[in-house]
Design a protein around this nucleic acid. Structure first.
Lengths: 115, 115
DNA sequence: TGCATAATTCAATAATCCTTGTAATATTTG
DNA sequence: CAAATATTACAAGGATTATTGAATTATGCA
């Protein structure tokens, strides 16, 4: 993971509809959803959704799989992990207690605790 | 944490120099660094650094403290945690094993493991 | 007070990204 | 093969963001 790729991924997420798409797919898990359902869920036009999905794909945050006449999109979890790691790398020079274990707290959310 | 704030934070990080500044301050911990040192470390002009620091501040990712004639910037760890949580919220509908516990893996980095 | 240092503000140009509609491609079904 | 559905590709505009240099504010020190 280098800085350039991280910026690409962050820029991909730094958009209201794309962030909504990403979070929807994070919730959805490995099976993902077809493009049309995604467009409907976030209130995007088909053209708009396609554009945004392509951005997220290009960035390495999601991936597409054709299933019949549908194209399903799902989160690329390894790409997501790489980004989170890059942001928190070497936090507090290895003394996470200094920041109140920011990451440890954030992690809980992956277990469905909503705050 | 709402979507609008998250987009603001992600957009703040989606820039080469700002990401470098943020990661530098993550490593540095709660004491932070003065603006001049930050500019030098990431190869920014004073004007450029000031602009980017203000963006990160406005987004709620860092905060400024005047110390004599220096202004020290440090990561706002709670703001960072909110963002990470927002990105991973309700991951895999509460079954993180489905994505290989993306967050659990990412978390290790906060302990200084450089992988 | 006067000078040096630290950092910011302002203004103008350049670059990038978002949005929308229309046309095109791929696939299933009759 | 023809029609219908799902999705993508292309092009043009309008809006937002980055960059630069010069001028400005704030602080410390002789």
């Amino acid at each position: 993971m280098n800085s350039k790729d991280a910026v690409t991924r962050l820029a991909a997420l730094a958009h209201d509809q794309r962030l909504a798409i990403f979070r929807l797919l994070v919730r959805e898990g490995p099976n993902g959803l077809p493009a049309g359902d995604i467009a409907g869920a976030v209130g995007a036009t088909p053209t708009g959704a396609s554009f945004h999905l392509k951005e997220l794909d290009r960035a390495g945050l999601i991936h597409a799989t054709r299933v019949g006449r549908y194209i399903r999109y799902a989160v690329h979890f390894e790409g997501m992990r790489q980004l989170l790691s890059f942001l928190t790398e070497d936090c507090c020079q290895g003394n996470p207690e200094l920041c109140g274990s920011t990451i440890k707290k954030a992690r809980k959310l992956c277990k469905g605790e909503t705050k």
